[in-house]
Simulated assay, not measured.
Amino acid sequence: MISKQPQNQSPAAIVKTLNIIHMALAAGQILFAAVTFIIPKSQEKGAANDMLIYIAPVLAITCFIAGHFLFLKLLSNIRRDSPLKAKLIAYQSATIIRLALLEGPSLFSIIGFLLTGKLIFMAIAGALVAYFIYVRPSRQKIEDDLSLGYEEKAELDGTDKVY
């Protein structure tokens, strides 16, 4: 896989980029949910609308579990002796995959609410967005997930010179 990540980007900039990506994805879901709440809903009954009530929770649970285990699998593939930038780029990829697997069912549930007007869809989306916000990549979570040593933590903070 070819990485198009700029090679001169500092570790702190990679973390900042990851936080911006997370914030943008979360804001998109929240704004979309708010807009669909305002739009009048159709109360049409149909086989497709009836199936949505079963598909949305199954999709949410499946993607939640898959995202969690895939994230852990991708983290376990990161070599401990890799340079910090390589670790952070791999962590960024794993996090984006995890976030995408949470965002998809959330948007599906919001669309289900838009089509049916049933609040159960908004509850599913709300739970997914809440978890989405909970897994926000903070510097502390990154340090813990990657099991960074003292020197790598200093480099991540931008104080890579140890006196």
Rank of each mutant, 00 (worst) to 15 (best):
L84R: 03
F113S: 12
I89D: 07
K85N: 15
F121T: 09
S109T: 04
A94H: 01
A86T: 13
E103G: 05
S106A: 10
L99S: 09
Y91K: 09
A94V: 00
S109Q: 02
L88S: 04
K85S: 13
M122F: 14
R98G: 09
I96Q: 07
G112H: 01
L88Y: 02
L102S: 02
L115V: 10
T116V: 05
R98K: 11
F108W: 04
G117W: 13
L115N: 13
A94D: 08
S82A: 05
K85G: 07
A123T: 01
P105E: 00
A123L: 06
M122Q: 10
K87E: 06
T116H: 03
Y91E: 07
I89Y: 09
L99P: 09
L119E: 12
A86K: 06
L99G: 10
I120T: 04
P83F: 12
Q92F: 08
P105S: 02
M122V: 11
K85Y: 15
L114H: 10
F121C: 06
I97G: 13
G112L: 06
F108S: 05
I96S: 03
K118L: 08
S82F: 11
A123Q: 04
I89E: 08
L115F: 12
Q92T: 13
L114S: 10
G117P: 06
G104E: 15
F108C: 02
S93I: 14
S93A: 13
A90R: 11
P83H: 12
L115R: 10
F108E: 05
S93T: 14
K118S: 11
L88E: 04
L88D: 03
E103L: 12
I97N: 14
L107V: 11
Y91P: 13
I97Q: 15
G112S: 07
L102A: 00
I110G: 06
G112A: 02
I96A: 01
T116C: 09
S109M: 01
T95P: 12
I89N: 06
K87G: 00
A90W: 01
T95L: 13
L119H: 10
